[in-house]
Design a binder for these strands. Structure first.
Lengths: 101, 101
DNA sequence: CATGCCTATCGTAATTTTACGATTAGAAAT
DNA sequence: ATTTCTAATCGTAAAATTACGATAGGCATG
């Protein structure tokens, strides 16, 4: 039973799915991702202009998305250009597809 | 800009996606859903036997899944039979598909 | 009608999340 | 070297999440 448990809870796919889902579990973060999908890429400042949130809050959400691997940032002084992390995005897509299959 | 914001954040699809994602944002809840997918249906007690968590904790996770609409419970005295809420499940699947498209 | 079974709910504690303003840090330009 | 601009980080407060044990409630069975 312990083994079965291991199998059910601690498998990598479940962990990965939970991780991605957690990143998507806030409307602002979804909106940021949608925005990135439309714009291809954008800067933190752009988001601060669009969303009614403090700069530090936006930055925190970006950090979460980065932690989950869904976005990546490139330093273009003096700004930072954020884009969807295409590779991980595909992985996430596949994992969700598989889950809902 | 307020209007655009409205459009970006407060649209129903974004809210729905965040709601479903939040329900999936914990490994235990994903494991419960996988278990339900395999078993078609099951009772709370079954889950308590499988997972190393207190009965009250399982109950709480079931409540979250119910709140998100992903499962439904049917009273079969003295037990409660839980199943995937097929209709909402399809909706969730579609919304995720659409998002990752 | 009392008993037993199953599960929800309550009360609670520890941790995490979300939001803000203020500060810091890095790089370019003056 | 100082100023300027952008964005991360810090410190903090409020709210939400997660977990537990204990309790309560609904419904059959004896």
């Amino acid at each position: 039973m312990e083994r079965q448990l291991e199998h059910i809870i601690n498998n990598k796919e479940t962990e990965a799915l939970a991780k991605f889902a957690k990143a998507l579990a806030h409307p602002t973060r979804i909106a940021i991702l949608k925005h990135l999908e439309h714009q291809t890429c954008c800067f933190t400042g752009d988001l601060v202009d669009v969303f009614p949130l403090a700069q530090s809050t936006i930055s925190q959400h970006l950090k979460e998305l980065k932690k989950a691997g869904l976005i990546q940032g490139e330093f273009k002084p003096p700004k930072i250009k954020y884009c969807i992390h295409q590779e991980n995005w595909k992985i996430a897509k596949t994992i969700f597809q598989q889950f809902f299959a």
